[in-house]
Amino acid sequence: MDWTLEVVVLPVSDIERSIEFYRDKVGFHLDHHTKNEHMSVTQLTPPGSGCSIVFGDLPAQKQMEPGSMKSLQLVVADAAAARQELLDRGVEVTELQVIAPSDGGTFFGFADPDGNSWAVQEIKARAENPLIAKDANARAWAEQG
């Protein structure tokens, strides 16, 4: 049986500001922003990822203090290019750190406006062997409209 991690609740203080940060600056896909008189819930997914972030004003999404999620980790095939992309979009990022010279040993980081922090790890092998096949990912996004 497969067990897939598909959603992580991210504690934020301002839903609209967080949508703008993750969609417009970081480049996550906005899957949905559901608002009605009872709730506001947003889900975004990093390009190529099978796991999304969700935030909103439902009680289950307000259990953690905004900014209390630390060291969520993203993986990219080229950390220098990813870092530059975020810099070009106005995101403050840390310097590249090479912890080990082998594949998987290069990192940088950034934080959202509330202080939730992210590590970005370079695994060059992801360029040729993504965890989710690109054609399957493209079909999924096309089906969502």
Rank of each mutant, 00 (worst) to 15 (best):
S71E: 15
R83E: 04
S117C: 01
I19Y: 04
F110H: 06
N36T: 11
K70M: 07
F55G: 01
F110Y: 06
K25C: 06
G56C: 06
A81G: 07
F21N: 06
R89N: 15
P101V: 05
A136W: 12
E95P: 04
F110S: 03
D135R: 13
Y22R: 02
V26P: 02
E92A: 15
G27F: 03
F28H: 04
L87Q: 14
C51G: 05
R23C: 04
A82L: 03
Q73T: 15
D103N: 10
G56D: 02
G105H: 02
D103P: 05
R126N: 13
G115V: 02
S117K: 04
D135E: 15
G104A: 07
V75G: 09
V12C: 02
G145C: 07
E6Y: 08
Q43P: 01
A80V: 01
D2C: 05
G27L: 03
S117N: 08
P47M: 04
I99P: 04
D135C: 11
E143K: 15
R139W: 12
E128Q: 14
N36V: 09
S117V: 02
S18Q: 03
G109P: 01
G90E: 08
A77E: 10
Q63A: 09
D2N: 12
H38T: 13
E95L: 04
A119G: 13
I99A: 11
F55A: 05
F21L: 08
W141Q: 14
F108L: 01
Q97M: 14
V41N: 12
M39V: 11
L10D: 00
L30N: 07
F107R: 02
S18N: 07
L96R: 04
V54S: 15
L74T: 05
T45Q: 06
K35S: 11
F55R: 01
F28Y: 10
D24F: 02
V8N: 06
V76C: 08
E85Q: 13
D2E: 12
S40L: 02
Q97Y: 10
L87D: 09
H38L: 13
Q84E: 14
L87S: 11
V8T: 11
D57L: 04
P59Q: 07
L96M: 07
G115W: 03
Q63W: 10
V93D: 08
F107T: 00
R139C: 10
T4Y: 06
E37L: 07
V12G: 00
L87H: 09
L86C: 06
D57S: 09
L44G: 00
L44W: 00
H29C: 01
M69C: 13
